[in-house]
Design a protein around this nucleic acid. Structure first.
Length: 427
RNA sequence: GUGAGUGUAGCUCAGUUGGCAGAGCACCGGGUUGUGGCCUCGGUGGUCGAGGGUUCAAGUCCCUUCACUCACCCCA
């Protein structure tokens, strides 16, 4: 085939699409229970938004952005970017609406596609969907913990086994994060020979990155200073409180001193949610606190905290699990002959008005073919209507699983299906 | 950006020292005039990823290239 999909982009079909939409539906339902309001943000933003928030030295900004340029323009500062993540847009929209000064306490969720240019692998795609939550105007540990408890609720509902990895990066005022940064810089300079090329470049601008050094990241991270050792009293209390909230709700977490996150804006709490069943890209969700971000982007000094869930990764975990999310029993409907077809179309409409999922089967083939299709698509019932039935005002209602069949008056079909469906064993 | 693996029917794959491109599943139809699954008989379906080379002869050997998958990295 000449016209194929772009590398790293995917078509979700059948069970794959279903798994993704189950995750999305459940996430929205949980968001409703947490009284979050939806925010819909643009697909494109100015490139500077990400440079100022995600970070000039982050992988996302340095090599993963899809930069869009109108065909009659040259390169320039007006370049636009297909959004690689949601948080910068939400913060920008929040400031642009004046909410940071007018009504700073806000709670949002968003859902939609993000684009990053990366080498594809299991659970990593160039276009993927994120469900994200951002809370503004809350500096307390409870708001951080509530986010994680929300994710815990969602993963429980989906029947997934996950583990939370948490850390605290400290704050900028008074100075536990800067002190940690300085210590890392000093450590990096002392061990320059053991660091890779990239780290040499990054060390001065963002020392946090040496913890992910390519040469021997684990060993370096082990020997390097830990952010937890530099926390000020308030940050330590904050982190202890977060842990206490999680423990009280029995959220399974472990403290990971090496967890730093790849984005620049995080302060204090940082976390990832890890699943064992989605391959090497095991983080299905991640987030943390970003108390300096609103101000950094030109708004008031408002604290914030949030997370994003990867829809496709979570869907992978869902499909690897035993969880079942079958829809209610579906109904197939087939008419025989011209009069039967006319009657079937009307009857299908009646049933659909009563909220039954109905599929009208092809009428240009034999009844046998209709039965085959009905059982293959997993329909619980098939309704057959032909000349004989029309003459007597009835239909044939066949239970495809039990292989039983009976005549039902045309006006009572919906009722009969509902009753029979209730009697079915759950899937 | 780096590394490894895989490309043959819609899917999963077999294909011997180079010698007529196959199987299972799926799909369509008959056996059954208006009744599915099981059985049975038949049928549709191929640029062997692409291009070049060696050879009487290439799915098979050589070169080039593309795609996919997984992993590193990074992240959701």
């Amino acid at each position: 085939m000449g016209l194929t999909r772009l590398r790293g982009f995917q078509d979700l079909i059948g069970p794959d699409a279903r798994a993704a939409s189950i995750v999305e539906e459940r996430a929205r339902a949980v968001a409703r229970r947490y009284n979050l309001s939806e925010i819909r943000i643009p697909m494109m933003e100015r490139i500077q938004l990400y440079q100022h928030s995600t970070g000039e030295t982050s992988d996302i900004v340095t090599k993963q952005m899809y930069v869009v340029r109108r065909s009659d323009e040259g390169a320039g500062t007006d370049d636009m970017v297909l959004r690689p993540e949601g948080t910068p847009s939400v913060v920008r929209a929040y400031i642009e609406a004046g909410l940071d000064r007018r009504d700073p306490y806000q709670r949002y969720y968003y859902l939609g596609p993000m684009l990053r240019y990366e080498r594809p692998q299991k659970g990593r795609y160039r276009q993927f969907n994120q469900f994200g939550v951002e809370i503004f105007g809350r500096a307390d540990a409870a708001s951080d913990a509530e986010l994680m408890i929300m994710i815990d609720d969602l993963t429980h509902e989906l029947g997934l086994q996950v583990r939370f990895e948490i850390n605290s990066l400290g704050c900028d005022e008074p100075n536990c994060r800067p002190a940690f940064r300085a210590a890392l810089l000093e450590f990096g300079r002392a061990h320059l020979k053991e660091l890779c090329e990239d780290c040499h470049q990054r060390l001065e601008r963002n020392p946090l990155r040496i913890l992910d050094c390519k040469i021997d990241g684990d060993r370096i991270a082990e020997a390097a200073p830990k952010s937890l050792d530099y926390l000020c009293d308030e940050c330590r209390k904050h982190f202890d409180d977060v842990k206490q909230f999680l423990s009280r709700r029995a959220v399974p977490f472990v403290v990971k001193p090496n967890l730093v996150r790849g984005l620049d804006y995080y302060t204090r709490t940082a976390f990832e949610v890890v699943s064992a069943s989605v391959g090497a890209q095991s983080a299905i969700a991640a987030g943390g606190r970003y108390d300096g971000l609103v101000k950094e982007l030109g708004g008031a000094a408002v604290p914030g905290t949030g997370f994003a869930i990867g829809i496709e990764r979570t869907a992978l975990a869902l499909q690897a699990s035993e969880s079942k999310f079958d829809a209610h029993p579906r109904v197939a409907l087939v008419g025989l002959g011209d009069q039967g077809n006319l009657a079937a179309m009307s009857l299908a409409h009646d049933l659909r008005e009563r909220d039954l999922p109905v599929e009208l089967l092809p009428t240009d083939r034999k009844l046998k073919a209709a039965l085959t299709i009905a059982s293959r698509m997993g329909a619980a019932f098939i309704v057959i209507i032909g000349e004989n039935e029309i003459a007597r005002g009835v239909v044939q209602l066949r239970d495809l699983r039990a292989s039983t069949q009976r005549e039902v008056a045309q006006g009572e079909v919906a009722e009969a299906i509902r009753k029979a469906a209730d009697a079915l064993p759950p899937d």
